[in-house]
Amino acid sequence: MKDADLTILDAAGLQQFLVLQDDAVKAVTERFYATHGSAYARFGDAGRQACQEDLNFHLEFLRPVLEFGLLQPMVDYLIWLDSVLTARSIPSEHLALSLEWLGDFFAAQMQAAPGAVVVQALTAARNGYLQTGVAPVVLPVQPPWPEAQDFEAALLRGDQRTALAVMNRAMDAGHSLVDVEMHIIQSALYQIGEKWQANQISVAQEHMATAIVQMVMPMGLLRSPPPEQTGKTVLLACVEGNQHAVGLSMVSDAFALAGWQVQYLGADVPTRALVAQITASQPDLVGLSVSFPQQLRMAKAVIGLLNDAMGSQRPAVMIGGLAVNRFSQLASVLGADASSLDARTAVACADQMVAAKPSAA
């Protein structure tokens, strides 16, 4: 899983890096405005704030490189960010320059050995971004059905009634909610994300679309025929810091319609509270959603705490989400038992794991 050419920081080096993050963001922002301030004048105060936010994201994606040797997600992020900045008429070369200047800061402020590790990681990410050009699609989008276009248009208009009608017509035609979510709803949301990236819609429209989906999907679950119960329980949660819960909601629906009892905890569940709930309820399976690489450490922390608290009685743990989809090996790196690309395969994998689990003596 680790890039063979990258060195990982030890605990002391990682702590040095974390302590210096805020100062690094401030220093590089000031350097940008001192050198290229005229390029950002049209953005006013919002431009300086956006610059700081982007630099903070750089460092959040850098941490998994330093902690796990996981370079490719940062490269993909940089390529994605380049397309976003280009759509907003911000020079592409400024992105590469920001990585170089972050390296200058950490080389000057950290002890020599850990500072060299940080510079190496930033250089590798910069080179990977400049050499690759186009980021691969990381979302396992299922083939969209024609209805996805109508659903997308309704979301962008803020038209909840039409979005609901599109879903209902598909279900009236005999399609399951899981199929509708994977081939219509997920596909529409992916296209909306692409349009936001290209600066064709606003962030407010993207949020509105997500909110409508979160209102429509439960209605599809309520009208679905009740399944035969399996007697098994799954607990699903987004790890601490992960605010993106729509995909996990789809997984929840798939398990519920497959006859599992679902404990759905939703977005951004604090680690200690999540571990306490799992320990108290003792489900057959735990599903953790991780959207961004910087959240991997939270998943690892949850699994480690569960091992400490429950030992051999720990339930099986499955991980999924955008940060996991391209790197199936992450399951073993984080201590999980399995990973899954989408809602349907999550249920199939869970059924196999539970069936293979030895019965309690």
Rank of each mutant, 00 (worst) to 15 (best):
A301I: 00
A273S: 15
Q295L: 08
R326F: 02
Q295A: 03
N325F: 09
P283C: 06
S339Q: 13
G304D: 06
I278R: 06
V290W: 00
S328T: 13
M298F: 11
P283Q: 09
A273K: 12
L306E: 07
F327S: 03
A276W: 11
G335V: 06
A280I: 11
S339G: 08
G287Q: 07
A309R: 10
Q313P: 01
R326K: 14
I319Q: 01
A258N: 15
V286R: 00
F327T: 06
G320W: 01
A256H: 10
D284H: 15
A338F: 00
F255N: 14
Q294G: 07
L305Q: 14
A276N: 11
L288H: 01
Q282I: 03
V302K: 00
G311L: 10
S332R: 12
G311C: 12
L285G: 05
L306D: 03
V333H: 01
L305V: 02
I303N: 02
A299Y: 02
W260Q: 05
L285Q: 12
G320T: 03
P270M: 08
N307R: 15
A276C: 05
V262C: 07
S281Y: 06
V333Q: 09
W260G: 06
V269G: 08
L296I: 12
Q277K: 11
S332A: 14
D337N: 03
A301Q: 05
S340L: 07
M318E: 03
R314V: 03
R326E: 04
Q277L: 10
P283H: 08
G259V: 08
A258D: 15
S332P: 04
R272G: 14
R314T: 02
N325I: 13
S312K: 08
M298A: 13
Q294C: 08
A273P: 06
G311V: 11
D308W: 07
Y264E: 00
L322N: 09
Q261Y: 05
V275R: 01
A301E: 03
V324R: 01
P315Y: 00
I303R: 01
G259L: 07
L322W: 00
F255P: 14
T279M: 10
N325Q: 15
A280Q: 15
R297Y: 11
Q313Y: 03
V333D: 08
A338H: 00
A331Y: 02
A276G: 09
L265C: 07
Q263E: 15
S339A: 12
P270E: 10
S289V: 14
V324M: 03
D268F: 15
A299F: 02
V275D: 01
V324G: 01
L265R: 13
V317D: 01
V302E: 02
V290H: 00
F327R: 08
A280C: 08
I303D: 03
